[in-house]
């Protein structure tokens, strides 16, 4: 039976990639954010996962509005990053785990989640930057990847309740996988931020705190809001908290210990957070 070692959650804004590229991690502006990662790296070194199941959202690299899946599960042997158009370096490719992907897909559809399956799927900065932050000095990623993309672009978006249920179904499928893999679940994006409109620059530390305070022990609290209420509370890009909610769901119903938590305002236009949870 596969072993879920815990969850790693972090903001993924493109500006982080710019800071890494420039070597700005210790600058006054960026240090409070990057200071959150030595404990993440130590925890990952101790937990020694060999597979990552990652909930993230695509920003217009792989998916466009011509065909926008609500939930898309990668089933590829390899995932590439590519030019996203705004100057980030192209990040390293990922090795997939197609057998585990298909196991998840079978289990999810059996549980009545009608997911889109992707045998070819480019992954964007929302997936690459959390890996760059977690494993900054490696030539190849130490984990194989199963990516799960959640639509946070085109309303109607899935509800927080549905995302938690998706995550729980993923977790149940992982626990039923007969392999002996050590699996880290990753949720990327957020926290509160809004890029567009007259409310651009909106952040909401009170809502972020609500999310951080309930993530470990009462994730269902995050499902009390509709997704439109989340957009109001967290900002229109703050709805990326859906990825965190799904990832928390995959950790299962057991209580989780907060290994570390870092919160800093702002990076770019975003209230940034990083969290590690492990089974209590």
């Amino acid at each position: 039976m596969a072993n879920i070692v815990g969850g790693y959650f972090t903001s993924h804004v493109p500006a982080i990639g710019g800071a890494i590229q420039r070597g700005d991690q210790q600058s006054e502006y960026w240090k409070p954010f990057f200071d959150g990662f030595p404990p993440v790296r130590q925890w990952l070194a101790d937990a020694a996962p060999d597979v990552a199941v990652v909930f993230y959202n695509d920003h217009g690299l792989n998916f466009f509005l011509d065909a926008m899946p609500t939930f898309a599960v990668g089933a590829a042997a390899r995932y590439d990053n590519a030019d996203e158009g705004w100057g980030l370096p192209v990040y390293k490719s990922f090795v997939g785990h197609p057998n585990l992907s298909w196991h998840l897909i079978e289990a999810l559809v059996d549980a009545e989640f009608d997911v889109t399956t992707c045998q070819k799927m480019m992954v964007d900065h929302a997936l690459s930057i959390p890996f760059e932050l977690a494993w900054p000095d490696v030539d190849q990623w130490p984990v194989r990847l199963v990516p799960i993309a959640i639509n946070t672009v085109q309303f109607p978006l899935p509800s927080p309740r549905r995302c938690l249920a998706l995550g729980r179904a993923v977790g149940a499928a992982l626990r039923s996988w007969p392999g002996d893999e050590r699996i880290v679940v990753i949720g990327t994006g957020g926290l509160s931020h809004q890029l567009e409109g007259a409310r651009a620059g909106f952040m909401n530390p009170d809502y972020d705190r609500f999310c951080l305070d309930h993530l470990a022990d009462d994730p269902a609290a995050l499902t009390a809001h509709s997704v439109e209420q989340v957009a109001e509370l967290a900002g229109t890009q703050g709805v990326e908290i859906l990825n965190w909610i799904a990832a928390r769901g995959a950790l299962g119903d057991a209580r989780q210990t907060m290994v570390m938590r870092n919160y800093h305002v702002p990076i770019s236009n975003t209230a940034a957070a990083t969290v590690v949870l492990e089974p209590a």
Partner: peptide, 16 residues
């Protein structure tokens, strides 16, 4: 507007 209990790095009992 960030409460000191919220902002910054917090290490839990589960950390090394």
């Amino acid at each position: 507007g960030v409460d000191p209990d919220l902002g910054g790095l917090h290490l839990g009992p589960g950390s090394s």
